[in-house]
Simulated assay, not measured.
Amino acid sequence: MSDESRDDALADAGYREVPDDQGGAAARGWWDANAAEYLDEHGDFLGPADLLWCPEGVRESQARLLGDVRGARVLEVGAGAAQGTRWLRTVAGAQAVATDVSAGMLAAGARLDATAGTRTPLVQADARALPFADGSFDIVFTAFGALPFVPDVPRVHAEVLRVLRPGGRWVFAVTHPLRWAFPDDPGAGGLTATRSYFDRRPYVESAADGRVLYAEYHRTVGDHVADVVGAGFVLDGLVEPEWPPDHRRVWGGWGPVRGARLPGTLIVRAHRPPA
């Protein structure tokens, strides 16, 4: 094991406060280091070119949460390997661009392009500082990207509002906030609440020297609604996908046992008011 690997070894994990600058910066390195493992585990379910909203298996081809995308200018933030953007471009007829903070995930996206013979615009960018002009897009979306990994979510909403044209849509999927009160266990062990739903301390993984390796932030349903409305959006609806009875796949804390009783995903749909 290299010195660098030892330095980055997980030494502590739990719910605790950390400085915002450390927690907010951790995602880039974590996803760079874990991109290949993540795609090895979930790549078959995600597909090389498909817009999967959540572990419950909701796909945009059926759900149409983005509305009519043909010819639309679409931005995906926290795109990972850009499977959703690739599908929008090659199947749905959108003019789509993918951004992610992780060079490792975007490199994986470039490899998918090389295998599929496609060309997906891939831009490395923090969702809190998007490198696009005001009003550049008709639709912005993310499926579990960006929002869970920053302490200052209102900055993401403000940037999305800025790059959307008046009337443009903003759709995002996150872990359902109710899940934070329960252990991250897909079986029966995940059915008993062990923490307060209102405990907003992030889940943090640290190295032996105290450096933050990973941070994931909790916001209640009310927090998400307040953030969206406070940024200037009009809230169009909340979607809580049910677990399909024939869906047997386990993904982290998601699975049929918990899914039959507890919501696992929250999808928020909103739009920028017309000028």
Results as ranks from 00 to 15, higher is better:
Met1Gly: 15
Asp3Gly: 02
Ala11Trp: 15
Glu17Ile: 12
Asp20Asn: 08
Gln22Asp: 15
Gly23Phe: 06
Ala25Glu: 06
Arg28Gln: 12
Asp32Asn: 15
Ala33Cys: 01
Glu37Gly: 13
Tyr38Asn: 01
Glu41Val: 09
Asp50Asn: 09
Leu51Gln: 03
Glu56Ile: 00
Ala63Phe: 10
Leu65His: 13
Gly67Val: 12
Val69Trp: 05
Arg73Leu: 02
Val77Thr: 13
Ala81Arg: 04
Gly84Leu: 04
Val91Asp: 12
Gly93Thr: 14
Val97His: 06
Val97Leu: 12
Ala98Asn: 09
Val101Thr: 04
Ser102Leu: 05
Ser102Asp: 03
Ala103Gly: 15
Leu106Ile: 10
Ala107Gln: 13
Ala110Phe: 00
Leu112Val: 12
Gly117Lys: 12
Arg119Ala: 13
Ala127Val: 13
Arg128Trp: 13
Leu130Pro: 01
Pro131Trp: 07
Ser136Cys: 12
Val140Lys: 06
Val140Arg: 06
Ala146Ile: 07
Phe149Gly: 08
Val153Pro: 00
Arg155Val: 08
Ala158Val: 11
Glu159His: 09
Arg162Pro: 06
Val163Ser: 12
Leu164Tyr: 08
Gly167Thr: 11
Phe172Val: 10
Ala173Asp: 13
Thr175Glu: 13
His176Thr: 04
Leu178Ala: 15
Leu178Trp: 06
Asp185Ser: 02
Leu191Ser: 07
Ala193Asn: 10
Tyr203Asn: 09
Tyr203Gly: 08
Ser206Phe: 00
Gly210Ala: 11
Leu213Gln: 03
Thr220His: 06
Val225Gly: 09
Val229Ala: 10
Gly232Cys: 03
Phe233Pro: 00
Glu240Tyr: 10
Pro241Arg: 05
Pro241Lys: 04
Pro241Met: 03
Pro244Glu: 07
His247Asn: 13
His247Thr: 05
Gly253Phe: 11
Trp254Arg: 01
Gly255Thr: 02
Val257Ala: 08
Leu262Gln: 11
Leu262Pro: 05
Leu266Phe: 03
Pro274Ile: 00
Ala275Leu: 12
Ala275Ser: 15
